[in-house]
Computed example of a mutant assay.
Amino acid sequence: MPDIEQNLAARDEFISAMRGVASSVTVVTTDGPAGKLGATVSAFSSVSADPPTVLVCLFAESRIAKAVMENSEFSVNVLAESAAHIADRFAGRHDAEVSDRFDSIAHSKSTHGMPGITGATVFCCDLQQAVRSGSHLIVLGQVRSVRDGQSRPLTYRDGNYHSVVPQDQAIACAAE
């Protein structure tokens, strides 16, 4: 059997290339016996429409990963482009000043009891499966309900937040 490690990309090259990939900014939230927690996550994707299923990747040793596993349900909140302060809060950038990441963040419980951030597009999920891959858990959730935030998403690329601009608007601005 060949040595898989020899065939992998160099870690630094991988990280550098991934910094160039834009992704929507999401906050995974959960509530239940393990407590009410939330964390900013960049790895989120649709898996299937039949049945509606999404995935998120969580650092396996994190509090949010452990809470999602114990609570067996979670929400994925796709943040609106005006919500960079919420992304920073749930990324832990204010943990020294604020003990509860939800403090002063507008949110409500969904019909299924999961915290949903106001203005975000929210996918409430039952934990279907979690698979360990390297340092992370790939968490699959069957979507029980959706609340469409009706706004453009906040994106993240190369260490900065960005706004999504429709191609025709970008071309029009460039022509002026």
Results as ranks from 00 to 15, higher is better:
5 E>L: 12
5 E>M: 06
6 Q>D: 14
6 Q>W: 10
6 Q>P: 02
7 N>Y: 15
7 N>H: 14
7 N>L: 15
7 N>C: 12
8 L>H: 08
8 L>I: 14
8 L>M: 12
9 A>F: 09
11 R>K: 07
11 R>D: 10
12 D>L: 11
12 D>I: 11
13 E>A: 10
13 E>D: 09
13 E>I: 06
14 F>V: 12
14 F>D: 07
15 I>D: 01
15 I>N: 01
15 I>L: 09
16 S>F: 06
17 A>K: 08
17 A>P: 01
18 M>W: 04
18 M>A: 07
19 R>N: 09
20 G>F: 03
20 G>H: 03
22 A>T: 06
23 S>H: 08
23 S>V: 10
24 S>C: 04
25 V>W: 00
25 V>G: 02
25 V>D: 00
25 V>Q: 02
26 T>E: 07
27 V>G: 01
27 V>I: 08
28 V>L: 10
28 V>A: 08
29 T>E: 03
29 T>K: 04
30 T>F: 00
30 T>A: 02
30 T>E: 00
30 T>V: 04
31 D>G: 08
32 G>E: 03
32 G>Y: 04
33 P>I: 10
33 P>F: 05
33 P>W: 04
34 A>F: 13
36 K>E: 13
38 G>R: 01
38 G>V: 01
38 G>S: 04
39 A>D: 02
39 A>C: 11
40 T>M: 00
40 T>L: 01
41 V>K: 02
41 V>A: 05
42 S>F: 11
42 S>C: 12
44 F>Y: 13
44 F>G: 03
45 S>G: 15
46 S>H: 09
46 S>V: 12
47 V>F: 09
47 V>A: 03
47 V>P: 07
49 A>H: 10
49 A>E: 14
49 A>W: 10
50 D>R: 15
52 P>A: 14
52 P>E: 10
52 P>W: 03
